[in-house]
Design a protein around this nucleic acid. Structure first.
Lengths: 102, 102
DNA sequence: TCCATATATCGAGGTATCTCGATATTCTTC
DNA sequence: GAAGAATATCGAGATACCTCGATATATGGA
């Protein structure tokens, strides 16, 4: 858990928005046929919603992954990203311990 | 409460360390004579501990203040900075609401 | 094997942040 | 009001971040 990297990843409005979008699969188009049971959203869907370039979104997801906020799972040619709730909770606990007085 | 500005202020290790130092007055030299009852720490003390230039620390404290993490109080030629626990708590609640799923 | 698709990586231009020294401002004291 | 001290602001060079298009890599299908 690298709090430095995590805060840095959060220091960008679009990356935070993506994290919010990923709370609910229904923020994105329906799953690809044959992939209905896979948790997570492919990069193309996130890019479409964010309206940023493919390389930027791929980079963002890599940063969010390094920060521990998301997990990536490859299925065929797609990479599916989903939130890592445990790590997110761990980060919140850590930042709270660092910021709060007692 | 500008979460954008707050996260940006936290996105620097020394600024976070200063916030931690300010949890406890005893992290700094004793109060100046005649100012024993004033809450907060003057810029010079923070600078001495941080070992960064005066202008940098002044700038950092300004950023922490804009972010709502500290309050500034002028007494004569000194500016005393102290943590704003209410705003810190408010920030933590806000970031938790944004990050946490339910 | 060759091609199309999805994603990752690379290189670069623009912008913001970091940090400093120099200077300005504010306040105290003589 | 002049000098000195504490802090704030300014200007600048170095570094990091943002974002893109171009290219590379991996996968699936004809």
């Amino acid at each position: 858990m690298d709090i430095e990297r995590s805060i840095s990843a959060l220091n960008n409005p679009m990356r935070r928005r993506i994290l919010e979008w990923l709370k609910d699969r229904s923020n994105f188009p329906p799953a690809l046929p044959g992939h209905e049971d896979i948790e997570g959203v492919c990069v193309a869907y996130i890019q479409e919603k964010a309206k940023l370039s493919q390389s930027t979104i791929s980079n963002y997801m890599g940063l969010l992954k390094q920060a521990g906020f998301v997990r990536a799972e490859r299925h065929g040619q797609w990479t599916f990203y989903r939130r890592d709730e445990e790590n997110i909770q761990e980060f919140l606990t850590a930042v709270q311990a660092e910021l709060l007085k007692k």
